[in-house]
Design a protein around this nucleic acid. Sequence first.
DNA 1: TATAAACGCAACCACTCGGTTTCGCAAGTA
DNA 2: TACTTGCGAAACCGAGTGGTTGCGTTTATA
Lengths: 108, 108
Amino acid sequence: MNRDIFQAIADPTRREILSLIASKRMTPNSLAEKFPSSRQAISKHIKILIECDLLDQEKVGREIYYEFNPEKIKEVDKWIEQFRKHWSDKFDQLDKVLNNLNKNKNER
Amino acid sequence: MNRDIFQAIADPTRREILSLIASKRMTPNSLAEKFPSSRQAISKHIKILIECDLLDQEKVGREIYYEFNPEKIKEVDKWIEQFRKHWSDKFDQLDKVLNNLNKNKNER
DNA sequence: TATAAACGCAACCACTCGGTTTCGCAAGTA
DNA sequence: TACTTGCGAAACCGAGTGGTTGCGTTTATA
């Protein structure tokens, strides 16, 4: 299934799972220990993250290690890009205000 | 209500609304014209965006202009920050590979 | 070989979500 | 004043979400 990555990171549990796995690859059981809900519930979250390529998996014996795939999360960063302009705009405005303040100070 | 900003941008219509308003402040009616759904549906989306401070409103007569608030979207950028490390890691690895390729070429 | 562990999958359920229709209210306008 | 316009709020509805329990399969272990 082709999932929406924004919908995938909408859930706070899934965001935490991503953070945990990004710092160190983990199995579903070791992940589930960190959360109040059941292993199956965590597995469902993992499945969603897999479905939009935010995670890769590697089977080792009867365990499955999930690891973070940094490529896909870039899409979010890319979307944010269009708004960065507004941040710098605000900075520019602040710059002007500060410059004027200094100007006035010097003129006084 | 204190909404989750990630849940707010999970919906593709809301993301489009944000993009539109970021480029130019708009009224609910002018926004709704851009979408297949009704004005009330759009108003619901706007309400959610307002509830997590992604939009500000200004009433002018009987019209309400919504405008983009750049501050709040930074929270998403902040969350992404923890993963940027992985992108540069990948670049470092690529660098090593390329360096080795060049080394081998030179030694040949 | 019998048992335990690690896991995915399916069925079920209460709740949320995104949409519509209907309504009421305030602000312009004839 | 009567009518239209722009809007939010409420009620309702089908679809989706996040959780649980139960089950089957594969792999390790006694």
